[in-house]
């Protein structure tokens, strides 16, 4: 059983409409989604020009590793969503533990990705190949977002540990950014690993 750490237990209304996080975070998220969207379409256009070369190169990727990383990131998002609910419940210690679990999944995702990069480079698949140049840039830029996401999660944990701060909005915003990382990976996974 979780005991509320604070007196405030607020659940956002479900009938009225409410912006999760704040407008600034949404400007950043929507901006990122549109920039990545443009890059996804560019990849597909290049793929359409050299379909056979791209398909052959894509077959060197392990779908199993892609699936594992997707499930790891989806699980991190589950922990992050539960952390937001825990904050609203006032179960702040539980929220901190869930944010740590989210970060651990993010670190695991990074390790698996590093292993995959190492394996591909060892087999000679570098940016000299057109598909792999897209693969390294797309997954690399995504990894940079994971790193920023981990920093934002750290800020949220720090916020919850300080009894004088504890602003639920900060946790909501960090978690929103984390879900965006998950969202972008779902598209990258389909694009690079499945649509071949």
């Amino acid at each position: 059983m979780t005991t509320p750490d604070t007196a405030t237990r607020t659940r956002p209304p479900t009938r009225g409409r409410r912006l999760p996080g704040d407008v600034d975070m949404w400007v950043m998220i929507l901006g990122d989604l549109f920039i990545f969207g443009g890059y996804f379409v560019t990849y597909m256009v290049f793929r359409a020009v050299s379909t056979e070369e791209f398909t052959a190169a894509q077959r060197h990727l392990s779908v199993g590793i892609g699936v594992t990383n997707t499930v790891v990131l989806l699980t991190s998002s589950l922990f992050a969503a539960l952390a937001v609910i825990a904050v609203r419940e006032g179960a702040l210690r539980n929220a901190q533990r869930l944010l740590w679990a989210t970060g651990a999944c993010g670190a695991l995702f990074t390790l698996i990705k590093a292993y995959e990069w190492h394996a591909e480079i060892s087999r000679g698949y570098t940016i000299s190949d057109e598909f792999f140049s897209f693969y390294y840039v797309l997954t690399g830029v995504h990894l940079v977002h994971v790193a920023f996401g981990l920093i934002f999660l750290g800020v949220a944990v720090r916020e919850l540990r300080n009894p004088r701060r504890r602003r639920p909005a900060i946790v909501e915003q960090s978690v929103l950014f984390w879900h965006m990382i998950d969202l972008l990976w779902v598209v990258i996974f389909a694009l690079l690993y499945l649509m071949r």
């Binding site: 956002p12 409409r17 409410r18 999760p20 992050a80 879900h179 969202l183």
Partner: peptide, 8 residues
């Protein structure tokens, strides 16, 4: 997850 179902 991003709770857009309750968003504007």
């Amino acid at each position: 997850f991003m709770e857009v179902r309750h968003a504007p």
